[in-house]
């Protein structure tokens, strides 16, 4: 399996770096709980009012929490010269983008999806909605990561990117949010979530083919003007 060795190495490196700073991994979860807390307070905290909006609130919360990790996706690699070494080396940048996206999804997408039961409990999400919620989030966060690597790659060499990153990412998140919360809604209304989940999966597959090459092209821009 030597053909995959560089990509495995990058995946392993990103996971190892993340676990060297384990506490940072909990920050998105902490952020998500805080957002849910704000919603819960604002909505009065009664189950009757929370239950109908709990699924969309969880969706928005998870997307926002995942978004916060994007700024750190490429910036350290730009700052210490790693990115230039990738561009100067023989390894396919598109392949490296797949490794990078996989690492990000494993760390944040899967992490946030697994923490959904906690958020669901806080928001009184009806228990029968939880399985479809988890399935939709697992697929949707994979798509969101793809959008994220494009946006992060486009802003990697900028000095700061905060609001700009949000401006780029949020409109593109929209279909994921619609199909994702649509799937949960379908179950709530007693219908089959299959259609919505398939549309969500189709969107994610499209992003998986489109995003890594786009991110690779974006990273090349600006290499002729190093910091």
């Amino acid at each position: 399996m030597t053909a995959l060795r560089p990509y495995q190495a990058l995946l392993a490196r990103d996971l190892r770096l993340a676990f060297r700073r384990r506490a940072d991994l909990l920050l998105p979860l902490g952020f998500a709980v805080l957002v849910v807390l704000l919603f819960g307070i604002a909505l009065g905290g009664t189950p009757e009012r929370l239950a109908p909006v709990s699924a969309p609130v969880i969706w928005v919360t998870v997307l926002l929490a995942g978004f916060l990790s994007l700024d750190g996706l490429f910036r350290p690699d730009v700052d210490d010269g790693t990115l230039d070494q990738w561009l100067a080396g023989p390894t396919s940048i598109v392949g490296l983008m797949y490794a990078k996206a996989l690492a990000h999804w494993l760390l944040y997408g899967v992490g946030l999806t697994l923490s959904t039961p906690l958020l669901a409990m806080l928001l009184n999400l009806p228990v029968d909605l939880l399985p479809v919620m988890l399935a939709a989030l697992a697929i949707g966060t994979l798509g969101a990561t793809q959008i994220g690597i494009i946006a992060a790659a486009l802003t990697a060499r900028l000095r700061r990117s905060g609001i700009l990153l949000a401006l780029i990412v949020m409109p593109l998140y929209l279909p994921l949010l619609i199909f994702g919360s649509g799937a949960v809604d379908a179950v709530r209304l007693g219908e089959s979530p299959k259609g919505a989940l398939l549309l969500l999966a189709a969107q994610t597959v499209l992003l998986l083919t489109l995003a890594p090459p786009a991110a690779a092209a974006a990273l090349r821009i600006g290499s002729d003007n190093p910091p």
């Binding site: 560089p6 190892r16 350290p76 790693t82 230039d84």
Partner: peptide, 21 residues
């Protein structure tokens, strides 16, 4: 230098070699 501060000398070297196969 393309070194990661959080990784050891050995880990950095191993990664840098692997990335260029």
């Amino acid at each position: 230098l393309a070194l990661k501060g959080d990784l050891t000398v050995r880990e950095n070297l191993r990664y840098n070699l692997a990335i260029g196969d």
